[in-house]
Amino acid sequence: MTDTRVRAYRILSALAGLAAVSAVVAVVHDTQGVAVASESCSVQVNLRFPDRPAQVRLRVFNGTRTTGLAERVSQDFKNRGFAMQSPGKSKTRVDEVAVIEYGPKSVGAAQWIRAFFLGQAEPRFSASRTTDVVDVKIGTRYRQLATQTEVNQSLAQLGEPAPPPGTCA
Rank of each mutant, 00 (worst) to 15 (best):
V34Y: 02
A121E: 09
R114S: 03
P53D: 01
G63K: 07
N46Q: 10
Y142D: 08
P50N: 12
T67I: 15
R114H: 00
R57Y: 03
R52P: 00
R141S: 14
R65T: 14
G81C: 08
A54T: 09
K137M: 10
N62P: 10
G88I: 05
S90T: 05
K137A: 11
R52D: 09
R129P: 03
G33I: 11
V136C: 01
V45K: 01
T66R: 14
V56T: 14
Q55Y: 07
S86Q: 14
E39I: 06
T140Y: 06
K105P: 03
T140H: 09
V133R: 04
F61D: 04
Y102D: 03
G81N: 12
A37T: 10
R93V: 07
Y142P: 09
T92H: 11
S40I: 06
G88F: 03
V133W: 02
V99A: 03
F116E: 04
V73W: 10
S128L: 11
R114W: 00
I138Y: 02
E71S: 15
K91N: 14
K78C: 01
Q120A: 12
G33N: 04
D76W: 07
F82Y: 15
A98Q: 02
E101G: 08
W112N: 01
F61Q: 09
V36P: 00
Q55I: 01
P53W: 00
G88R: 09
A70G: 13
R141T: 12
M84V: 05
A127I: 07
T31L: 11
T131Q: 11
R124D: 07
F61K: 02
R65F: 12
S38P: 01
Y102I: 04
Y142F: 15
R57E: 13
V36H: 12
A35T: 09
A109G: 09
V97K: 04
P50V: 06
D135Q: 13
G63I: 05
R93L: 06
R65A: 15
D95E: 13
I113K: 00
R80K: 14
R141L: 15
V36N: 02
V45L: 03
Y102S: 01
G33L: 07
D95K: 13
M84W: 04
V73K: 08
R59K: 15
C41S: 07
A70M: 09
D51L: 13
F125D: 03
Q44Y: 05
S42G: 14
T64L: 09
T130K: 14
P53H: 01
L118F: 02
D135A: 12
Q32D: 10
G81E: 10
D95S: 13
Y102V: 02
T130N: 12
Q44N: 11
L47G: 05
S86E: 13
Q44D: 03
I113D: 00
R57N: 06
R93S: 10
T92C: 00
V60Q: 06
V97F: 07
T66W: 07
R114N: 13
T130I: 09
F125M: 07
F117P: 05
S128N: 13
L47V: 03
S126G: 13
G103N: 09
S106C: 04
G33P: 06
T64W: 08
N62D: 14
Q32K: 14
G63V: 03
G108A: 06
A110C: 04
P87G: 08
V97Q: 07
L47A: 10
P50L: 06
N46I: 03
R59A: 11
F117L: 02
